[in-house]
Design a protein around this nucleic acid. Sequence first.
DNA 1: CCAGTATCCTGCAGGC
DNA 2: TGCCTGCAGGATACTG
Length: 273
Amino acid sequence: MPELPEVETIRRALAHNLSGLRVVAVRGRSISMRRPLEVETLGEILPGRRFLEPRRHGKYLLLDTDPPGALLVHLGMSGRLMLVGPEVAVLPHTHITLVLENGYELRFVDPRRFGHMTWLDPGAESGDPSLAGLGREPLDDAIDTWLPPMLKRRRGPIKTLLLDQRVVAGIGNIYAAEALWRAGIRPTRPGRHISLERLALLAREVRRVLIEAIEQGGTTIRDFATPDGDFGYFAVRLRVYGRQGQPCPECATVLRAKVIGGRTTAFCAHCQR
DNA sequence: CCAGTATCCTGCAGGC
DNA sequence: TGCCTGCAGGATACTG
C-alpha cells in the first residue's frame, strides 16, 4: 500500500502527534511476519522511552526514541498505523499496541502481514538488512544528476529499475507508472536504451509526482489513512495507475496494461515511447 | 550473475 | 446467495 508519499504523510502526522510522548505499556501477540514481530522484546525495551521526531528513509519509518534507539516500521502492502484514544474500536489484525502516557495508543494494523516492526539498538541502523543498501532519496533536488547514470548502468525495463529500492528508495507501483507517463517513457523500455536527457526528465518527474502526492496527503485507493484517520487525496490526480481501458488524459488513446517485473503497469502506447 | 517467477497473507471484486 | 478465481499500494528467496 504505502509508498514514499504515504509514509511521509504518516511521518508528518506522527511528528505532530507522537513526538515527545512516552510509552507506558506494550500489548500484542508475537506473530510471524516478513521479519518476526517480537512483542515480548518490544515490551521489555519500549516502556519508559520517549518518542522523538520520526524519520523516514524510502518506505521505512524510523521512530527514534530517548533513551536512544529506534523502532523501524515498514507497512508492506496493507499495513497502517493508528494513533487513537482507547475508546476507538480495535480493528482486526491489530498486531501490536503501544500505550502512551497520555492514554492514546499507537496501533500497528496489518492484515496481510507483509510489513514489520523491529527494534534497532543505537548503531544497528547501518547494519540492518532492510536499510543497508537502500538507494538515495528521490525528493533530493539533485536527483536529475545522480539517478540517470544509475539507470543507464543497470539492465532491465525502466519500470523495474524505478521499483528497485537499491537504485532509489521509496517508489512503488503507483508512482512508477505515473512518473513514466509524465515523462512519456514506455515502462518496458530498457533503462540503458534511454538517453541521459530523457532519464533526467524522468528523474524530475519522479520527484515532482512524489512531492505533489505528499501535498495531497498521499493516495488512498482502498484503505490508506494517516494515524489520525485522514485520507489522501492524490487518487483523483492519478493519470494512468489503475486506469487501463480508459482514455489517456492527454491523447484519449485507450490505456493499456502489461505485467512488468511481476506488477501490473498501465501506460499509454501513444504518449509513452 | 542476471532476469523472471513464486511466495508470504488476507480481503475483496467480479464471474458464474 | 454463494463459491471460486484472480488480483492488490512490497520485498525477497528461489529457479533456470
